[in-house]
Amino acid sequence: MHFWRLRDQKFVLKRLLLMSTLKTPPFFPHRHLLGIEGLSPQDIAALLDFAEEEIDVSRQVEKKKSVLRGRTQINLFFEASTRTQSSFELAGKRLGADVMNMSVSSSSVKKGETLVDTAMTLNAMNPDILVMRHHSAGAAALLAQQVDCSVINAGDGAHEHPTQALLDALTIRRHKGSLARLTVAICGDVLHSRVARSNILLLNAMDARVRVVAPSTLLPAGIERMGVEVFRDMKEGLQGADVVMMLRLQRERMAGAFVPSVREYFRYHGLDAEKLACARPDALVMHPGPMNRGVEIDPAIADGPNSVIREQVEMGVAVRMAVLEALSQHLPNRGGRG
């Protein structure tokens, strides 16, 4: 018994010591995270700095903080997503929140309930944070108007996916030191990609040079006015790039609708060794996942020395922890319960 008690004491001491070394979250002047749009470079830098701390937490044996203890986080996913949903779930749990997952297949949306009705219903359950992915652009903003809690956009249609852009930025910054003046080529289905839009906004805000590389059928109208250089030829687009960000091509868009076939897409827009050779030798290869190996990326490149794709996943949890913690400053009764 005595032995056990001693161990307990040591453990508590260790934890107290550890917590005192952790920084408090930076002041974050927003109640919701609906997009990168509206964030200042300072906001972004603060979130990234803070995410660095969260990486340390996630690498400990005891991956736990208590800033969200007693708080309720609901992950509301109208689109299936293993990766983002589990990343948010883990982030919430590591901060001590009670996390509930709701996915569309089991929800009342299938029974005809509107998004606003769903929001009101959930709101009545007094959640503290709602994380939502929805297939329609603007859905997160609509939700935020209807509920009292903080809303995090985990992807709304082809509009924004802010935590993906933040985790990409964190990954790049850890390898390159800074985002400023880096040349980043975003390649593939820009037209349908919320990841591309959030990344374009973030990278521009942080002073990077952004290129988009895609067949014309996969470029949204007026993209050149969003502060990017547009390339249709991938080798030209990758010339001297510091970072190559690949985007996923949805299966239903492969055969004839936007591009003629998988083999033609891979030939001209798939990242292989020959095209990657146009980028800088130390270029980072990134992909938000899930990958279509042999469609937008050669398996050898995905697993090659330039690839940081798996690291992006780790950074995802850290960034989401940082966002959750930053938003928690605005939760009611702060200090009263925590």
Binding site: A255, G256, A257, P260, S261, R263, E264, R267, Y268
Partner: peptide
């Protein structure tokens, strides 16, 4: 009249 062919190849 439904799916375009492989113009590049």
């Amino acid at each position: 009249g439904k799916e375009m062919t492989e113009f590049g190849l």
